[in-house]
Design a protein around this nucleic acid. Structure first.
Lengths: 167, 167
DNA sequence: AGTTAGTGTGTTATGTTATAACATGTAATG
DNA sequence: CATTACATGTTATAACATAACACACTAACT
């Protein structure tokens, strides 16, 4: 059974989770994928992915660079952007446009159009699948337009923060 | 006659329109709104809105600044960003995150969660209402999360460009 | 009038995010 | 062992955005 502690009083979309499991699963998934696709999961790529998986929230490219620097990698901007582009291309990372941040994909196996739910107060970000978001998945064609990529970000306030708000 | 062949075979969402009418309507709408809300439609604000309405596609802040400069306004960055923020706040302009661009709202009367459809080839951008996009409007609450603002951008290729593609 | 508060614009400087262009290294292929 | 493909490194700069402060104008008071 998938470990998932009871979670009644936290917002349902900002699920708690066992991070050790999450981390291990994600590494395994990316390893398998890279082998299958004959891609190189180099130390740099692995490190960037690990940084994102660990933080489990959007990081700016320059935050990532800083962390890279601390672990002995080069930390000039193109390093981060190139690796991020690569990981995005293969579905392991998403860019959160509203925050200029990058986040590890929480389910790289789905080919999907992710929706991000962003609390403006606590800045938690949840990636939700189309089914759970209450959004219909965009139909692949809208009036003769072929969708290749979506950016769907819902910004607002989570119940925890709302309850804490003074006003 | 405005060049625009009958457009049953062009993408329905990139509708042609009579730009003179569109422009006039938009100006009237913003004037009415500002009067009703007792806001100042200053020359600068009007000019920025006109620039966007005229171009009818997303412009970068610095493009707007350049146009402002040519008409005798100041063209230092805060000028544009301040006015844009103001117009966005009141629903007359949207930011297209994927392009770092700003576009006049095509229907400021609707309070709405707009969807933008963006052709990556011709770079045309259409604002579509929820009904037409095939997307459900996001429910105001998703699992205890209150949505205040949405960014929904669908990037891909319009049929016109697709037909023209070599591959 | 004089004072105060609110708003709008102007200016300088700087912060933040992202990319261009070119150099080097390394591994696989023919 | 030349060629190609790919990954990384480096310098410089482009593109996007905001902070902080200055000044002008109006409205609404005392």
């Amino acid at each position: 059974m998938k470990k998932k502690k009871k979670n009644e009083n936290s917002s349902k979309i900002f699920l708690g989770h066992d991070h050790g499991v999450c981390f291990g699963d994600a590494i395994t998934q990316i390893e398998d994928y890279f082998i299958k696709k004959k891609l190189q999961l180099t130390p740099l790529r692995r490190k960037v992915f690990e940084i994102l998986i660990e933080d489990h929230k959007p990081l700016g490219a320059y935050e990532i660079l800083e962390k890279l620097g601390k672990t002995g990698f080069s930390s000039s901007p193109p390093i981060a952007y190139r690796v991020l582009d690569f990981l995005i291309e293969h579905g392991f990372v998403h860019k959160v446009q509203g925050l200029n941040g990058f986040i590890a994909c929480s389910n790289p196996n789905h080919s999907h159009f992710p929706t991000f739910v962003i609390c403006r107060k606590c800045e938690k970000v949840a990636e939700v699948s189309e089914e759970k978001s209450g959004l219909n998945l965009p139909s692949p064609e809208i009036s003769n337009f072929k969708i290749e990529k979506t950016t769907i970000e819902l910004t607002g306030i989570c119940s925890t923060c709302e309850n804490a708000e003074i006003r």
